[in-house]
Design a protein around this nucleic acid. Structure first.
Length: 497
RNA sequence: UCCGGCGUAGCUCAAUCGGUAGAGCGGGUGACUGUUAAUCACUAGGUCGUAGGUUCGAGUCCUACCGCCGGAGCCA
């Protein structure tokens, strides 16, 4: 009977057939241990010399060879996972060529060039499954709340906004661009269906080589008619809580395997703090913040000293180690640790500068990366920052009635320096104000005629936001780089495979 | 675009002062009844990123270029 590794616990004592790939092999004189991988898990299979022909074929198997294996399921505490299979039949589909990815350490360049194979490794499969859970949680959240999914176009005409970050495509001789947001189209759909969302890829030709940037990433954007900023913030808060809850419900073990600390994720429950940009600016400049940051700096300096001590200890163990492979193992550990030390050193070096930047923060400027990190450090959960200065923001955001100079927008900052994962706003619904803002930003009103029409034919207050799937995933999984959150990442300078 | 770092075997990395290119893993052959990155023995495997230059002699020093990594700006 065909089965999968995920179902094995229910098959104790039965004879089953698994279909999969060789994850690793260890052989003794009269026994071969295969770690079999079938896409649902990993299971140890044993072939013994008394099994005859299949023992000979098992000895020839290489890493990632494909096969069907039949055998008896039995519980055994010596087996990783608790169950193993004693083989009775082995049908080799293909003996794999020498597989480039071993279970040893590899450099990121090599892994990225072999992403098509790297996907089979433990970490990538876990992250892809969590990605699936997050996307499903997002869709369930909106679907359960009466939203309609509306797909917006990927090819868009050349509306002026910052052409530097647009990818140009030849459209029958006309230049058109890959979408950066479905928002403007979604506003039209919201006037038809009231609550809508789109979910698709988005393209930015930013020349950014950092751990937070992809040139192609996935974004979900809800848009709601008759909604004001507070409604949009509530919606975003509920979404983040629903996502984190879904991931915790299904992936605690996976997160632990990725080395993620679960406590901060369990804290992610409504309500999140909501501060205005003006509050944030004051906080950045305050003496209390300075004191807090300097205390933290001292703590981290102590931590650095501890890490350096650990490095010294490991170096001593390395010198004392007799076996070559023990030295090698320690080398790998040391390499990681030294990298962490180096990163912390660099971080510590730049922090006094960041404190100064924050202390001298001028109202009117957009929050910089280091400012965002400081704000998020002062909050145990994700935090909303609202009402930014008008000049720093897009033309379609609604101008505040009460205090001139700001707009009704919001960003959600993820903890631990993961940065902005949501950006949204209430939209400007007054036709005259909107047209003036288009002109003030040096855009051609003719390009936006259709968009302005929404304000002529039954305009209503409305708003929405965009959530970046990869940054959210990166934060939840505690990854160092967003390139690991998508099967085939597209980065500046990397398009293969 | 700017700043910093790194390019040596299939992979991860050594190579002291400029003086015969090395180890582990992976591959191959063999040994071993229970392995947990198995172990042990033997073995094959190199355009030292590319092009110049200095030198009796360059992986090592100099110049330029290319590639990758990290960061800044900008952003989700």
């Amino acid at each position: 009977m065909n089965t999968t590794i995920s179902e094995l616990a229910r098959q104790d004592g039965k004879t089953v057939t698994l279909q999969g790939w060789v994850y690793s092999k260890r052989s003794g004189g009269k026994v071969v241990f295969l770690q079999l991988r079938d896409g649902t898990g990993i299971c140890q299979c044993i072939v013994e010399a008394k099994d005859g022909d299949i023992f000979e074929s098992a000895k020839d198997l290489t890493q990632e060879s494909s096969l069907r294996l039949t055998g008896v399921v039995r519980a055994d505490e010596r087996a990783p996972g608790g169950f193993e299979i004693a083989a009775t039949a082995l049908d080799v589909i293909q003996i794999a060529d020498e597989y480039p990815i071993s279970r040893k350490a590899h450099g990121i360049d090599f892994l990225m060039s072999n992403r098509h194979l790297w996907l089979r490794s433990r970490g990538p499969t876990i992250v892809l499954r969590i990605r699936h859970t997050i996307i499903k949680a997002i869709r369930d959240y909106f679907d359960a709340d009466g939203f309609t999914l509306v797909d917006t176009p990927v090819l868009t005409p050349g509306a002026g906004e910052d052409a530097q970050t647009l990818f140009e495509v030849d459209y029958f001789g006309e230049p058109v661009y890959l979408t950066q947001t479905g928002q403007l189209y979604l506003e039209c759909a919201a006037m038809a269906l009231r609550k809508v969302y789109c979910f698709g890829p988005t393209f930015r030709a930013e020349k950014s080589k950092t751990r937070r940037h992809l040139t192609e990433f996935w974004m979900v954007e809800p848009e709601v008619a008759f909604a004001e900023l507070d409604d949009i913030v509530d919606l975003a808060e509920g979404l983040i809580c629903a996502i984190v809850e879904a991931v915790l419900a299904r992936h605690e073990q996976d997160l632990l395997e990725l080395g993620r600390d679960l406590a901060p994720l369990r804290r992610v429950q409504a309500p999140f703090d909501r501060i205005t940009y003006t509050d944030a600016a004051e906080t950045l400049r305050s003496a209390e913040t300075r004191a807090l940051l300097e205390e933290e700096l001292e703590r981290d300096r102590a931590r650095l000293a501890e890490w350096e001590q650990t490095v010294a200890d490991l170096e001593r163990q390395h010198d004392e180690a007799k076996k070559a492979w023990q030295k090698d193992k320690l080398d790998v550990e040391l390499q990681h640790l030294r990298q962490d030390v180096q990163e912390l050193e660099r971080d510590l070096e730049s922090r006094p500068q960041h404190i100064e930047l924050a202390q001298n923060f001028a109202w009117g400027k957009d929050l910089g990366g280091s400012d965002e990190t400081i704000i998020s450090k002062l909050h145990a959960k994700p935090v909303f920052v609202t009402d930014y200065p008008r000049e720093a923001k897009a033309f379609y955001m609604k101008q505040s009635a009460e205090s001139a100079g700001t707009v009704r927008n919001m960003d959600l900052l993820a903890p631990d320096g993961y940065g902005e994962i949501i950006g949204g706003s209430q939209r400007e619904e007054q036709v005259d104000v909107l047209v003036r803002r288009i002109q003030e930003q040096g855009l051609d009103p003719a390009d936006y005629d259709w968009y302005v029409d929404l304000r002529k034919y039954g305009t209503v207050p409305h708003g929405g936001f965009g959530l970046g799937v990869e940054r959210t995933l990166s934060w939840i999984c505690g990854l160092k780089h967003v390139r690991e959150t998508i099967a085939f990442p597209r980065l500046m300078g990397r398009i293969y495979p």
